[in-house]
Simulated assay, not measured.
Amino acid sequence: MQHFAMGSWLLFFAYATSVVGSTVGLACTLQARHASGRARLGWLVLAAVSIGGVGIWLMHFIAMLGFATPGMPVRYDIARTVLSAVLSISAVFGGLVVFGVRAGFSRWRLLVGGLIMGLAVNLMHYTGMWAVRIKGTIGYDGGLVLLSVVIAVVAATAALLFTVVVDRLALRVAAGLVMGVAVTGMHYTGMAAVRVTMDQAAPDPAGVEVFSFLFPVFVLAAAALAVPISAVLMAPTRRARAPLPALQTSST
């Protein structure tokens, strides 16, 4: 079993993809905290698609380009692959709703939102791995699986915290970098937990190769990111709005 069959450069490409999706999504989350009603919901939807769809799901399958069982095929179940994308976006949206539904800062909302978003990263990863088909079986080391959960939750919570500390570009980028660590760190820790048992006598797995769906999805994701990026660029700056009481603790 190999995790870098195409070279270590894939790790950096996957991380960069996660950072871009996460940075755009967290910027949308910040905008949601300034908005209200349908506008707030719209920003959270854009954030969930950016983080869950690009920052987490697309990053996972880019990284999976390096997963190989030498001499034997690796295939993917399309229905389960699509399900992993739906679950990722939905779970991230749930975490963002908890965190971004109020303008005031709330510690419990931060912790619960970070927990849900961190678990969303894990949910996507292991659902995505459920879609993998090989000539054999896939198992996991329980200790490393638990570590992957901790990494994702801690880093996701830290990334959300960055979005309310200061409304500055540098902090938005820092939040994206931290969220990228959550996603890629969780992914490769989760992959380190994988235990593969090959069976030469087993039939070739059904499904499709990752290349057959990843390239069109990558192009689609790049086009889809244009919407939240444009929305963030056209949104009014903080100076044009009333000050946000970001560090004022809310009881609700």
Rank of each mutant, 00 (worst) to 15 (best):
M179L: 03
A48T: 03
A32T: 09
M59V: 03
S22H: 03
L147M: 10
T189D: 06
R133N: 03
H3M: 11
R168A: 07
I229Q: 03
L110N: 10
M6Q: 15
T69E: 14
A68I: 02
A155T: 01
Q248E: 15
Y188D: 11
E209F: 04
V121L: 02
L144D: 14
A159M: 01
V121Y: 00
V210G: 08
V183C: 00
M124G: 13
T127Y: 00
L144A: 14
A152E: 00
T184A: 15
F162D: 02
G143L: 08
P245I: 03
P245A: 10
L147A: 12
R38F: 15
A152W: 00
R33D: 09
I51A: 00
L65S: 12
S148D: 03
M64R: 01
V74C: 04
Y126M: 07
G180I: 01
L233Y: 03
A27Q: 10
T157R: 02
P236N: 03
A152V: 00
L177P: 07
R80G: 13
A16Y: 12
G104A: 11
E209W: 08
G53Y: 00
I62N: 06
R80H: 14
M234G: 14
I51E: 00
V149I: 15
L220I: 11
R40E: 10
V149G: 05
G94N: 14
G25C: 02
Y188L: 02
S90P: 04
V173T: 05
G37F: 09
A201E: 14
M234R: 15
N122I: 09
L225E: 10
Q200N: 12
I62C: 02
Q200S: 15
T29D: 09
G53D: 08
V112N: 10
A47Y: 08
A224I: 12
A192L: 12
M72N: 12
V217S: 15
P70W: 08
V97A: 13
L247V: 05
E209Q: 10
R195Y: 11
K135D: 10
V194F: 13
A226N: 12
A85R: 01
F213Q: 03
V181T: 12
R238K: 15
L225F: 06
S18I: 01
Y76W: 09
M59F: 06
V194N: 10
R239Y: 12
S106M: 04
C28G: 03
S36Y: 09
W57N: 13
A235L: 12
R168Q: 07
A201Y: 14
G37R: 05
Y15H: 12
V153S: 04
P228C: 05
A240K: 13
M124Y: 09
Q248R: 09
M129I: 01
L65D: 10
T252E: 14
S50T: 01
G42S: 11
T29N: 09
V166I: 04
I89E: 12
T249N: 14
A235G: 03
R107M: 10
G143S: 11
V154T: 05
L214N: 08
G185W: 08
R33F: 06
Y15V: 08
T137D: 15
S106K: 00
I51F: 00
A91Y: 12
L41Q: 13
Y15R: 10
R75I: 01
T29A: 11
P243W: 06
R238H: 14
G42N: 11
R80V: 08
A226S: 13
G95R: 01
T17I: 08
